[in-house]
Every structure is written in C-alpha cells, then in structure tokens.
Nucleic acid binder design. Structure first.
Lengths: 194, 194
DNA sequence: CAGTTCTCACCTAGGTGTAAAATT
DNA sequence: AATTTTACACCTAGGTGAGAACTG
C-alpha cells in the first residue's frame, strides 16, 4: 500500500465516435513544468482496473508521481487499426487515428502536506472519506443540511468531442485544448495550489 | 444491490498456453440437474470487473441463479482467432480453438437459508466477513490461535493444463473432467448440501 | 410450514486529514 | 526549516449469518 487516491477524480465523456470502429482509451499524466525535466518524468505504468457498467467505463489507474511537481492528466483515443502495439510503460503512440485531449483546468500539483488552508477545507467538504473532519459547528440551513447529507458531489465531466471520425486523420498531434482555461485545484496525492 | 457473493471463490491457474497467441478467458455457470430443465437455465449475463495485477487476473462476475438448484461453474479458454464474436448473454462458442474446463468437485447448490449446520460452521470459520460469528469460546492452542489471527484461507487452485496448444484443434467439445471427483461444498449464495 | 426477504450487529477493507515523529 | 513518514481516530463501503417478518 503506497500513495493516495486522486481527488477529485478525472471524469470524461466521449462523443462522436464511429460506431463501426473500435478504439482504445488510454490515460496518462505528464509533467507540466519543463524546467524540472532534470528530474526524469515519472513513468506512467501501473495497475489498471476496468468496470463495465451499462455504457459507463470506470478506470482506476495507479500512477507514481513525484511530490511538489505540477502535472497534467491526458486522455487518448486511439483507433484500433492504427497498428502500433499498445503497452503500459511505453509512451502513447501518435499519428493518424490517435487523438489526445488535455484540459488545462485539470492541472494539479502534488504535495505530501497541504500548503493552503482553502484546499484543505475543499477536500474535507467534498471528499466523503473526510467526513469526520467536517465542521458541523457552523450551522447549516435546513436545505443545506439535507444537501450535505444526501448530495454526493462529483467532479465535472469533461467532454471529448469528435466532430467526425473521418476528420481524425488530419487532426493528429499534441494536446488539443478543447476547453476553458481556469487555473485549477484538481489535486491528487495530498496536494494544494503551490 | 441483490444477491450474495460466492464463497469460497473459484480459483484457477492456466498452464501451457502458446505465448505467441492471444486468448479470451470466459466463465459461466450451468445447471447440473437436467431434470429441472423446465425451469429455464439462468442467463449468464452480468457486470464484469477485471483487475490486472502482475500476472494475476481477478474476475468478479455477477451471475443470476435460481435458488435450490444445483450448478456447475465452467472456465473456457478461447483462442482469439477462432473468429466467432464473443458476447455476454450469448452461449460460449464451441469448436476448434475453444476448450472448456469444469471440475466436478466445484458443483454447488444454491439456497437462501442454510440447510446444514456443518456448512454454516464452515462458512463462519473460513469467510473473513463472518468473523463476528466465530466461536471464540472453544479455546485454541497457542499456534492455532496465531493461525486463526493471521492465516487467510483461500480456496484451492484448479489447474487448467494444455498439453500443447497445437493439440487444441482436435480436443474440442464439452467439459473435460481434468480432475478428482470429490463431491463438494463450494456454494454461492447462502447455500449448503441439500 | 417451507422458503424467501429484510433488518441488524458485527465484521473486513480501505480512504480521510491530523499531529507527532522522523528525515533531509 | 522544510518536507516526508507514520500511527491514529473517524469515516465510507460493503460482506457475514442470525433472526424476525413476510409470502404462498
């Protein structure tokens, strides 16, 4: 047992795939800060768990990261017939039939102890496992109390959209910033905004 | 949430595969008692969870069974190039490149309440989740007490052996009783020997 | 009455931040 | 001094059989 779970989790929704095609879905986490490249970028290997429930796909990926570094999660959609062998430990292939998505607001910083009191409060308020630390002192209104009891907060879903699968060949290459640009607090391992 | 977990679990070890080939591994549970066929055999559909850890593969399969019936778990090794489409809800294909294993000692009977006091004791003694019901009254010897605390009992591993992959074409067909014939107590859902 | 369903106390298993202790 | 590690109380989440309640 080593490391801690990412919270909040990355949630993604994929639209516009060709139903007659098959795809691989891959995820990795790459360092954001190029200045630190003398510390070798952490390997993206790890155990993978899949759960198929209806049309949903839950992926639990174990990735080793370094503390006090800035990282960016990425999601890759890889057309099955784009020959190159897929494998953990190897970098995700690029080229035709491979599309990489990364959302700048999901950049996070790894820490071993929180640096920011606001992050701590956010985690305690949102993570069900931290319920024991919630400040039940400040009294909530009736509705707020009900929400607190019943609501299960979940991180927002990022949507990966293919305008059309046939365009995929021309749109290869690096990360496609398909979304807003709010600097964020999504933070795995105990973490916070540095 | 419906149904209960099978205990003890089915454990299987596969040997003799061709490293240059790819295989599907399937599991289903079929009724043993042909006399009851007027009750339609239960579907083998269900959610599947996979966990890859090192070379181990954990499969959690959710299968709906009828109570008070006798069942037989089976494991299928299916060569990937044996064309026919794989799908839950459909019966496992048979023919060349498909090998089915079933161990007669793993036959079990489904119940909603235990019929046999010995089964109850076995479950309580072996299943870690039933620890609350263990009879700590009858005192154990020192070693036995230590064992009780630390030992995690796991059901025996059945070995599925391919003498040679190339023989697989000729050895198609139904279940291959590859093992001893002890009538057994392996029993999912609350269950017991009828 | 035989069989099923439901609730419950009692477990396992493991995810939280905290605070002290250890490390660098 | 800054950071990481460890033990801990407090949670979530869910798997046990017992026994009451329910069903046909």
């Amino acid at each position: 047992k080593a490391g801690r779970r990412m919270f909040p989790a990355m949630r993604v929704k994929i639209a516009g795939l060709d139903p007659h095609q098959q795809y691989y879905i891959a995820m990795d986490i790459v360092p954001v800060d190029n200045k630190r490249y003398r510390c070798p970028p952490p390997p993206t290997a790890g155990n993978v768990s899949l759960s198929f429930i209806s049309l949903y796909l839950y992926i639990y990926l174990q990735i080793i990261l370094h503390s006090m570094h800035k990282y960016q999660p990425r999601v890759h959609i890889i057309r099955k017939d784009s020959s190159s062998e897929l494998s953990a430990n190897k970098p995700v292939p690029s080229g035709e039939g491979v599309k990489t998505f990364s959302f700048s607001e999901t950049v996070f910083t790894t820490v071993t102890a929180y640096q920011n009191q606001q992050i701590t409060r956010l985690k305690i308020d949102r993570n069900p496992f931290a319920k024991g630390f919630r400040d039940s002192g400040r009294n909530r209104t009736g509705l707020e109390a009900i929400m607190e009891t019943y609501a299960f907060w979940r991180p927002p879903v990022r949507t990966l959209t293919f305008e059309d699968f046939t365009n995929m060949q021309k749109q290869q290459g690096g990360s496609t910033g398909t979304s807003p640009t709010t600097s964020s607090t999504g933070t795995p391992s105990p973490s916070g905004a540095a």
